[in-house]
Design a protein around this nucleic acid. Structure first.
Length: 429
RNA sequence: GGACAGAUGCCGGAGUGGUUUAUCGGAGCGGUCUUGAAAACCGUCGUAGUGCAAGCUACCGAGGGUUCGAAUCCCUCUCUGUCCGCCA
């Protein structure tokens, strides 16, 4: 959520910044400003009446205690009461409309986010690693998985529906090894391991920006206002929802390994084969809460943390900075890490490391007390800045390993860094 | 799932219609005293909206209602605790 004060003060700047995204928000901002000024007018009128009422009511109390007559006061109070009722009936209309509009506005792109319309204008930061030369026909990861009997697509569908897969044998062990490797690396980088609910309520999803706009993307529990999390970003960030943190606690760096559930509404037909796009997948997520002045640095740190996983697994990847048009709803700046898939002869997203500024924190009301050395009384509550990214999506990492480490005989070499997590086993065959 | 009890500020805890700007205690912070500390004493100590400011307004789990006036009365909901049942 954007700051209404900022919108009020610099509407043109906000309009301009939002125009760098693909869509136009000029109308919404004008509507917000209109509702805002109308509402504030009513608000001050209301408060004046309330002040008057409180004063008179107190007088009534005093007079009655002294057994004096207070009819005159009661008469004016009745008039005020009617007026107040009139205004208070209007109030929810204004504030609801205001909220609805504000919740629909995406974050403004940061100064360092390149301007661009779509994916094609994303900026390549660098490529890392050596793409392997294969002197045999390269198989796709799902072909390898079926051939080795470690990915069972049909039975996964039988258990649930399409886009669910049973992962078996050494692939399942690889997943577990990946989880351990990723969590250990995150711990080395000072991210505290956390185990959180994978079901979240609507307030939590609103806090991180999935709601209200992207409701159709998550699975809802029947007859309950509860949802399967689409990413651990939701529980990790919302751990501190509605809290005021101590300045010294920041930055707070967290990591969690969780399953993630996505309805994939609107992506029918895309990546229907393989485990690239599933309704359920595992992911190690990194989340940072920090002060504004720490945010850029922490964003870089978190991204490097995610890159480290790819590097240690020796998977070729590239780092891309998203342009304004490709930026996610809540993000102000974002790096995508894309891993090389030889069968597709292209890079595919495996991690998205986003800086949100105070956008999520304003929705989720996560603040800290900024101490003022000169005048401790002037210590102010300030919104934290939030950052998150995956390190990494386990399913896609598994797919990338199967493809990049395949051998001509159909076996798969196990990356060195994972062997210690798999009883020193060197090969899947 | 059943029964009962409860939800008040950082914590404990009082408050059942108006002189309550939410009593009091503890912790924290500032000060006095002290070589320093402790003790004692004095002061301070929530969030948000609005305003240049003084101030004003709202908030006692959430939402609604009654009333000139609600932490207090009424209704609905949520959560927590205890006991019972079931259970990894």
């Amino acid at each position: 959520m954007l700051d209404i004060k900022k919108i009020r003060q610099e509407p043109d700047l906000i309009k301009e910044l939002l125009s760098y995204r693909n869509l136009e928000f000029i109308n919404i901002i004008d509507q917000i400003l209109e509702v805002d000024s109308k509402w504030r007018e009513k608000l001050s009128e209301k408060e004046k009446l309330e002040a008057e009422r409180n004063k008179l009511s107190k007088k009534v109390g005093q007079k009655k205690a002294k057994k004096e007559n207070a009819d005159k006061e009661l008469e004016s109070l009745n008039i005020i009461k009617d007026k107040l009722k009139e205004i208070s009936e209007l109030e929810p209309k204004f504030s609801e409309e205001q909220k609805k509009l504000l919740f629909e506005l995406p974050n403004t792109p940061s100064k360092c986010t390149p301007e661009g319309k779509s994916e094609e204008e994303n900026k390549l930061v660098y490529e890392w690693g050596e793409k392997r030369n294969f002197d045999f026909p390269v198989l796709e990861h799902h072909e390898i998985g079926v051939q080795q009997n470690i990915l069972d697509f049909e039975r996964g569908v039988k258990l649930a529906k399409s886009r669910f897969t049973a992962v078996k044998g050494l692939a399942s062990k690889l997943e577990r090894a990946l989880m351990n490797l990723m969590l250990d690396l995150a711990a080395e980088g000072d991210y505290e391991e956390t185990s959180v609910p994978v079901i979240a309520n609507a307030d939590s999803l609103q806090g991180t920006g999935q709601f209200p706009k992207f409701k159709e993307d998550v699975f809802k529990l029947q007859d309950e206002d509860l949802y399967l999390i689409p990413t651990a970003e939701v529980p990790l960030t919302n751990l501190y929802r509605d809290e005021i943190l101590n300045e010294e606690e920041l930055p707070i760096r967290l990591t969690a390994y969780t399953p993630c559930f996505r309805s994939e509404a609107g992506s029918a037909g895309r990546d229907t084969r393989g485990i690239i796009r599933q309704h359920q997948f595992y992911k190690v997520e990194l989340v940072t809460l920090c002060k504004a002045e720490q945010a850029e640095e922490e964003h870089e740190k978190l991204t490097k943390q995610a890159e480290k996983v790819l590097q240690i697994l020796e998977l070729p990847y590239r780092k891309v900075q998203l342009c304004s048009g490709d930026l996610g709803f809540s993000a102000t700046k974002c790096y995508d890490l894309e891993v090389w898939f030889p069968s597709q002869n292209r890079y595919r997203e495996i991690s998205s490391c986003s800086l949100f500024g105070d956008f999520q924190a304003r929705r989720a009301q996560i603040r800290f007390k900024r101490s003022n050395q000169d005048n401790p009384k002037k210590s102010k509550n300030e919104l934290v800045h939030t950052i998150n990214g995956s390190a990494l999506a386990v399913g896609r990492t598994l797919a990338a390993i199967l493809e990049n480490y395949q051998k001509e005989d159909g076996s798969i070499e196990i990356p060195k860094a994972l062997q210690v997590y798999m009883n020193k086993k060197e090969r899947v065959s």
